[in-house]
């Protein structure tokens, strides 16, 4: 009888190497999915572009930016933040599908690093969103959007957007583990869309009824969009307290979301074995 047993990592360094290798294998699995379904991947990346065209050219003509400035210049940072928000759906669908199909259980019964399921997912999804951000940047440049600040500010804006995506990663993982299957995606979309539109992403909050405007201004999407507008030197930043502290709020929101959803996800994952 030939039983091939793999070497068991004994030192912390060896364990870390295993965890990194496993995480990479899991991430590569998702990258392979993109290659195998290029059409779906392209549609997912180009969908926000469609929204830019819709809002920028069909609806934008009717929207005035307080303090002046072109609408598309205002819209792009909002669309960057929306692209991060759409990431919840990607993460949710992947996590819920694996859990429902028994793939998560198979991973858990295997001699791999338990953390790899999550780190691999995180790496692949962050890469996906970074790619989405690059596509949107290209789209923005094509429709006349420019960043007018210095490079360090622009880099900070990108970092803040990705930080928001990282926070949404944990929201997506938690919801995916909570769901009974990928069929609940429609319910998640029902959550994602109002949250996205109840923000300053498409229109300045000053145009909304008072209380709704305040609510929209405090939305994490608005915080990221406002910070990005500020850092990119784009118009429509406003002059409320939130607008003046846009960068601080754009750090605080993701930090708060991670503080809530990271422990919830870990607890939910552990509860799989109860």
């Amino acid at each position: 009888m030939t039983v091939i047993l793999p070497p068991v990592p004994r030192t912390p360094a060896a364990r870390l190497r295993w965890a990194a290798a496993d995480g990479w294998t899991i991430a590569r699995r998702t990258l392979t999915h993109w290659g195998r379904r290029p059409g779906e991947t392209a549609v997912a990346l180009l969908f926000p572009v469609l929204m830019v065209l819709m809002f920028g050219y069909l609806l934008g003509g009717g929207i005035l930016i307080p303090g002046g400035g072109g609408y598309r210049e205002f819209l792009m940072p909002g669309m960057f933040a929306m692209t991060m928000l759409f990431g919840i759906e990607t993460t949710f669908a992947a996590v819920a599908t694996d859990a429902a199909r028994g793939v998560t259980d198979r991973f858990r019964s295997m001699p791999m690093a338990p953390s790899a399921v999550v780190t691999g997912r995180a790496a692949a999804d962050m890469l996906h969103s970074a790619l989405g951000l690059a596509v949107m940047t290209g789209c923005g440049l094509a429709v006349g959007w420019r960043w007018r600040g210095d490079t360090a500010d622009a880099a900070l804006a990108v970092a803040l957007l990705l930080l928001l995506r990282l926070a949404f990663l944990w929201v997506g993982i938690y919801l995916g583990l909570l769901a009974r299957g990928p069929e609940s995606l429609a319910a998640v979309q029902l959550l994602v869309w109002p949250v996205g539109f109840l923000s300053n992403a498409f229109v300045p909050t000053g145009t909304m009824p008072g209380w709704l405007g305040t609510l929209a201004e405090w939305n994490p999407i608005s915080a990221a969009a406002a910070a990005a507008r500020h850092l990119f030197g784009n118009p429509g930043t406003g002059d409320s307290w939130v607008a003046e502290h846009a960068v601080t709020v754009a750090v605080a929101w993701p930090a708060l979301l991670i503080a809530i959803f990271f422990p919830l996800s870990v607890r939910r994952y552990r509860r799989l074995s109860r």
Partner: peptide
């Protein structure tokens, strides 16, 4: 398990190679 717990987008070969790598 009760579900055929394989990745449906990957090919048979890609599935087994992935599980092989995860077994180090």
């Amino acid at each position: 398990g009760q579900h055929a717990a394989v990745d449906e987008i990957l090919t048979g070969r890609q599935n087994l190679e992935m599980f092989g790598r995860l077994h180090h």
